[in-house]
C-alpha cells in the first residue's frame, strides 16, 4: 500500500509551533538554547585568543585586530549578551530544578528579571571595557 491510499488517521494531532502565539516564556526558552549554541562557538574564539597569547606577539596582534574590527566587535557584543543571558537564565533554570518559582506569575517575573539583568550587564561590561581601554 502506497502512502497515497493509506487512510487518514483520525487521531488528534498535537498542535505545533506555528499554532501558538509566541509568549515570553517560550521566547526565553528558545533564546536559552540559541545563546548556548552561540557560546560554544564563542568558546572557539576564546581558545584562539589563548593559543595566540602562547604563540607570540604576531599571532596575538592578528586576534586583537580582528577583535577591534566592526565584525569582531559585533561578534563580541553578541557573545557578551549570550554569556550574561545564559548565565542569568541558567540560574533561573537551576532554581526551577530545585522545585521553586514554577508558578506562572513567578515564571514571568523571573523571565523579565533575566531580560533586564542580561541587558544591563551587557551595557555595563561594554561601558567598562571602553572606559578601561
Amino acid at each position: 500500500m502506497s502512502s497515497a491510499d493509506r487512510p487518514v488517521s483520525k487521531r488528534p494531532l498535537s498542535p505545533h509551533l506555528q499554532v501558538y502565539r509566541i509568549q515570553l516564556t517560550s521566547l526565553l526558552s528558545i533564546t536559552h538554547r540559541a545563546t548556548g549554541i552561540a557560546l560554544t562557538l564563542g568558546a572557539l574564539y576564546l581558545v584562539w585568543w589563548i593559543v595566540a597569547i602562547a604563540a607570540g606577539p604576531d599571532a596575538y596582534a592578528t586576534v586583537s585586530s580582528f577583535s577591534g574590527s566592526i565584525v569582531g566587535r559585533l561578534m563580541l557584543l553578541g557573545w557578551t549578551f549570550s554569556l550574561f543571558y545564559h548565565l542569568a537564565n541558567g540560574i533561573r533554570h537551576l532554581v526551577w530544578d530545585a522545585g521553586r518559582g514554577l508558578d506562572l506569575k513567578t515564571t514571568y517575573m523571573s523571565g523579565w528579571l533575566v531580560v533586564l539583568s542580561a541587558s544591563a550587564l551587557t551595557v555595563i561590561a561594554w561601558i567598562a571595557a571602553y572606559a578601561l581601554r
Partner: peptide, 11 residues
C-alpha cells in the same frame, strides 16, 4: 573587561 585593549605582554 579588565584586559580590553591589553598588549601581548600584559595578556
Amino acid at each position: 573587561v579588565m584586559l580590553t585593549g591589553a598588549d601581548h605582554a600584559t595578556a
